[in-house]
Nucleic acid binder design. Structure first.
Lengths: 192, 192
DNA sequence: CTCAAGACTTAATCTACTTTAAGCGCATTT
DNA sequence: AAATGCGCTTAAAGTAGATTAAGTCTTGAG
């Protein structure tokens, strides 16, 4: 399936787009093919696009003063991502976005997205629901981080994202769970 | 200021409401005065309302299997809150919402809110932005939880929410920071 | 094909935070 | 005024997970 067709299909989950809306979207979308380990947003730059993943997998992460990285989310086929804070405020991003696999993404620039919101209110609705779903996921993760051990969090991640596990190196998963790769390795060996 | 006027004023931050929209909102809003330590959403019940805080302070929290509680957010004057997951899915809530102080809230039922979204797209926009802001806050907190010590998190909380600090007991703050009240007490005594 | 860099493991030592327990001050209820 | 319970503190002992370091295996770029 073509990347753009896949994007339109994803909107079927919410409020499907009519022909006019599809055209309006198509005219504002840019497709990019990106090889693995490529940073498409760097801390300090302003985030200028919302990005839809058609193929591949990306991560968004922050880094502390010492440069240590902490994964905030993975985005695979069908997911949207952006540093929303930077996109809105047009201040320098605190976060990085980087491909983990060779990927095909569709991007829409802030001005074009705002334009869509203004002319076609359905996009406000659809993006509201997309952000709400991501909010629920994030809230769930914060609760898990407070209330469970690293082993439990690993098993919950396994259960919730069985496909991602096969595609991600353990070091990326450890960072997402808030632990070190060494400790994840220990946990996994003790499971057997 | 009357609670409803305060609510309308808060929307000025986003897209202000015209007279028709204000009336549509007024007709669907219910005001409630609630004394402190009252649960307005209990784990296992379905969340039926979005709640706006006009006066006072509430918390939303989860509990683990042993009944231990973990604060996910505080909502004071001007904030909205709901268990969005339960509100959308109409499944039993995982979370609790409870007043910390005597409070005045304005509530809108799901069906009425959906109705507003359908007839007045501006509400889709405004609630999208409200959720986005909460998402940014939550993402920031998850990053802090991974990358900083309890002391740093306490100081960041002080800096970011100086007014809340005066109103909340330490035990609530500890739960929000993901530590025990005992450890928060120790940290604070070592600061001097 | 080669080689350097990334990815996984194991193990010893270290520490941030928890758990448990006890005591005290303060506010709310009776 | 008494009683009850909540919030704060201190301290000892315990633990989940970090850090450091060394070594092996895998991978993709040239």
């Amino acid at each position: 399936m073509l990347p753009f067709e896949y994007l339109v299909q994803q909107f079927e989950k919410y409020l499907p787009l009519d022909g006019t809306e599809q055209e309006a979207l198509r005219n504002r979308i840019v497709e990019r093919r990106i090889k693995r380990r490529t940073c498409i947003l760097h801390q300090g730059d302003v985030c200028k696009h919302y990005t839809f993943v058609a193929e591949g997998c990306l991560k968004m992460y922050g880094a502390d003063a010492a440069g240590k990285e902490y994964n905030l989310l993975f985005a695979a086929e069908g997911d949207w991502l952006a540093d929303i804070d930077s996109l809105h405020s047009e201040r320098p991003a605190q976060l990085f976005i980087e491909t983990i696999e060779p990927s095909v993404v569709l991007q829409i620039a802030k001005a074009d997205l705002w334009d869509l919101f203004t002319h076609y209110p359905k996009f406000d609705r659809n993006f509201r629901v997309i952000v709400e779903e991501q909010y629920i996921e994030l809230q769930y993760r914060l609760f898990q981080t407070f209330s469970t051990t690293a082993l439990e969090r690993y098993e919950l991640f396994l259960a919730r994202h069985p496909k991602l596990i096969q595609r991600l190196p353990n070091t990326q998963i450890a960072s997402y769970l808030g632990i070190t790769p060494e400790f994840l390795s220990k946990i996994k060996s003790e499971k057997r």
